[in-house]
Design a protein around this nucleic acid. Sequence first.
DNA 1: TATTGTTATACTCTATAACTATA
DNA 2: TATAGTTATAGAGTATAACAATA
Lengths: 162, 162
Amino acid sequence: MATTDRPDFAQLIPPEYRGHLGFLLNKAQRALVDEIDTALGDGLAARHFAIVGVLHARPGLRQTDLAGLIGIDRTTTMKIVDELEGRGMVRRAPHAEDRRANALELTAEGRAWRERVLPLLIEQETRFLAPLSAGERTLLQELLLRLVAASFDRKHTDHHHE
Amino acid sequence: MATTDRPDFAQLIPPEYRGHLGFLLNKAQRALVDEIDTALGDGLAARHFAIVGVLHARPGLRQTDLAGLIGIDRTTTMKIVDELEGRGMVRRAPHAEDRRANALELTAEGRAWRERVLPLLIEQETRFLAPLSAGERTLLQELLLRLVAASFDRKHTDHHHE
DNA sequence: TATTGTTATACTCTATAACTATA
DNA sequence: TATAGTTATAGAGTATAACAATA
C-alpha cells in the first residue's frame, strides 16, 4: 500500500527488534526529531520550536512553569531560553506579581519565526506519517497519549512507603 | 476504561502537546527505558540487555555488524561491549575467517543474567502497556514498525543528486 | 524556610577523527 | 585502498548542587 515498488524496508530492522517497543520508540523518536532539526536548520531544533509554541499559547509564563510543562529540568530550560533570547525571539520580562520570576514572552521576531517554520514542520510530520492512514495517525497519537499519561501517573503518584 | 477511580492523568500533559508526535514519542520512550533501567539496576541498562539479546540470537557476530544491527555507531558499541566484557557476560573471541574482527559470544554468566532478567523486563513492559488492550498493543507495534521502516528507507536511499 | 533564576559542574549518549593491524 | 577494532575527543542533552534575591 505504501512503497510497493520497493523492497520491504522493514527487513532492515532485525527481527529481534521488530517487536521491541523500546527500540521502535527510540528509532521513531530520533528519526522524527532528526528530520525536523534538519528542516529547521540554522542551529535551531525541535526543542526551540516547542518552547516558542508554548509561549505563543501562554504568554507571560514563568521559566519554572515552562520547565514543568514540557517535562524537563529548570536548568535545561535555562539554556534553551538563553539561545532563543540570544536570537531575539524571546524576551525575559519582569513578572508583575513576583519579582523573583521572569515572565517569558515572544518578540515580534519570535512570532515571525514561528509563522515561517510552522508549514515546514507540518510538512515534515506529514512526510513522517505518510505510511499511515489518517485513521491510523489519530490512533497512534491516542495510544501514545494513554501510555504517556499512565507513566506520568506512576511517576507523580509518590510511593512514600519505599 | 483504564483507571476510572482516579483523575484523568492525560490532563497532566499540556494540551499543546497532546497531539505533538515528537513530544509523545520522546516521553513514551524515556519513560519505558527509565523504568527498565530502574528494574535492572546494578548499573546495567536496557542497552546492555539489547546487546545480550542479539548475541543470544546470533552468536559469533562481529562488533561492526552488531553496531549496524542496532543502529548505533561502532564506537558506541565498543563502550557497551566493554562494560559487558568487564562484567564477564560477553567474550571477544578471535574471528575464524578475519583476524581483524572479534566474534562476540555470551559467556555462561551472560546467558544466566539474560535468563534472570528476562522475566523482569517482560513484567516491566506489561506494566507499561497495561493501559492498552492486547489488540492495541499489537497495533501500536505495527504502526511504529511501519514508521521506522519508512524512515530507514529515506535514510538508506541515498539522494546522490543533492 | 521555600522558591526563582542562575551558575558551575558532571554524567550519559552519541558521533567524528585518527591510529593499528589486518584484508 | 579499505575495513575492524580501538582510542581520544567533542558535542549534545540532561541532571544535581549551591548561591543570591525574593517570597
